[in-house]
């Protein structure tokens, strides 16, 4: 079974009769790199949050790695987020009190792993992303936007997830840095086979994904 994510007929109705999703079905295979595009308010974040088990759908189902996530407990969903999913958001991803290195190990610590062992792994990941070693001990405000997002990507990878979800992860960066971070994710996808679902505004970036999913008004445009 190569299907990693399978969503069936997702609906999301927010308080005040806001129909954010109106019947979205989508399959994402292992190793795929999918871009979700659409105008602001079309439901991209809502869809990503539901796939990431951060928010329950009003109606419809999400299967992750073959598991019907509507049938498991809250704690089990939390565990799946920790072990199988990595998140990268647009901004203020990182904890401001922690150094770059410490930020990266947070998901590992949540999983109960040792600090030192996690730091070793984090150093390897950060180095492989081209973050210079002297940056490891810097706090987020001392890092550039591009560096911050690299750290956020590294953190998303620390627990060897199957899936990385990015909600406009390069949305705050200039186009050059944006391309670099995007290239990095593409490379991780190719070399490690990690599945990526990325929400983006940037058509150029989207055009280089394996597949583009266009959302409009809560449904997928064919």
């Amino acid at each position: 079974m190569s299907e990693l994510v399978k969503v069936i007929d997702l609906h999301k109705i927010y308080k005040g009769d806001v129909y954010a999703l109106r019947g979205v079905s989508l399959n994402v295979d292992r190793g795929e790199f999918v871009a979700i595009v659409g105008v602001s308010g079309s439901g991209k974040s809502t869809l990503l949050n539901i796939i990431g088990l951060l928010d329950p759908p009003t109606k419809g189902k999400v299967f992750l790695d073959g598991v019907d996530t509507s049938l498991i407990t809250d704690n089990e969903r939390t565990k799946i987020r920790n072990e199988k999913i990595g998140f990268v958001f647009q901004h203020h991803n990182l904890l401001s009190e922690l150094t770059a290195l410490e930020n990266v190990i947070v998901p590992a610590l949540i999983a109960g792993r040792e600090i030192e062992e996690s730091k070793e792994k984090a150093k390897m990941i950060l180095s492989s992303m081209g973050l210079s070693e002297k940056r490891f001990l810097h706090r987020p405000f001392e890092l550039s936007g591009g560096e911050q997002q690299r750290v956020a990507v590294a953190r998303a990878l620390i627990n060897n997830p199957l899936l990385v979800l990015g909600d406009e992860p390069t949305g705050n960066l200039d186009s050059k840095t944006s391309k670099e971070v995007y290239d990095l994710m593409r490379e991780l996808n190719r070399e490690k086979g990690i599945t990526f679902i990325i929400v983006t505004h940037n058509e150029k970036i989207a055009s280089r994904a394996d597949r583009i999913v266009r959302l409009a008004d809560g449904i997928i445009e064919e």
Partner: peptide, 16 residues
Amino acid sequence: TRDIGMLKAMGATSSQ
């Protein structure tokens, strides 16, 4: 608040 949201997204439980 944002940090807590992030920690929860990364799998921190309510009791953690």
